[in-house]
Amino acid sequence: MSGLIKSEMYKLLLDRKKWLLIIIAFGIKCTFAFFTMRINVGFSAGIYREYINILSETPEENRGEYIEKEKCRLEEIISAKAQTESDYHNDIISLDEFKAYMNSYYDAEHKQPAFEAILEKYQRYSELPDEERIYYYDLDIQALLGYLGFDYFLFLFAVIFIVPCFCGEYSCGIHPLISVTENGRGKLYFAKITAAIFVMAIISLMFCTADFAIYGIKFGFENCGMPIQTVRRTLFNFPAISIAQYLVLNTVIKVLFDVCLATVICLMSVLLKSAILTAFAVAAAVLMPWLMNSLLPQWINRISVGAGLSGTLLTCSENVLLAVLSIVFHMIITVMLGYILWCRT
């Protein structure tokens, strides 16, 4: 059996220089992640960080005072700016004077959106009753959590690599020879599914690790020990785990759903016997509900395979029980699909 699994692994990963394709895909994915994983906010992350650094260095009891002062300063400058504009339009000041004033306001004007974000967070988190939380760095984590959506690269990989696992037999015409051998049905199918699941799990882990590594390179992991509730306010019913633990849990769920996807692809390959048809069917089954989420009831979106694959099952579900039920449901479906596949042999 292990010999057959090795052969299938060879066909999936090494035959026809597929390893080269994996390296290229992995490289593109990493490059893409590096340049697109960013703090997606409407202000300069640099200024936001400056404020964070100032607040970090300020003793906690003085932070409120600092924020109040900065708020007043910025408001005064904004007000002065409005006055300057009015003076210019009323010919009270010349154009040169107007330009000089406006230049002096530029810095404050530029800082205002970032400060407002700081102020909003400060006010929001100050209302929370308990523990000492480092609220201000959460934008970095948000950048990662925001990025950990549906991985189209991984989906494409799954379709390109897993579909030929069974369809390759039909397309090259070797199936009549294989199906009459002693191990050509049950054992071979088991070996193929095992190899597909194993490859999918490994690649899924690789891709998730790449996201984390790139996040670490860009932002560092200093704040991953914080409770997840500090960055996901919707998760107040969730057990008190750290962001790092949450990310690990999310990765495990993602890998489980990728395994589910690999099994679905295998079953569809056997049923449809055509690589193109299978690719379309899988894309339709997985992507359509995900892409048409506005047309479907919310609860379906929240527990769908797409939600599992995108890693948003936990964050969307709000209710841990619903998320766990969704995972159990999909795992049962996966086992059933595997069983149907087995029976077809």
Binding site: K11, D15, R16, G168, C172, G173, I174, P176, L177, V180, T181, E182, N183, G184, R185, G186
Partner: peptide
């Protein structure tokens, strides 16, 4: 089932093999 297939050798009329092997 597999016990009989273990005794079989089969050459179909038309077939293919993995071209990269």
């Amino acid at each position: 089932g597999a016990r009989f297939r273990a005794k079989l050798g089969y050459l179909p009329q038309s077939f293919g093999l993995y071209p990269s092997f």
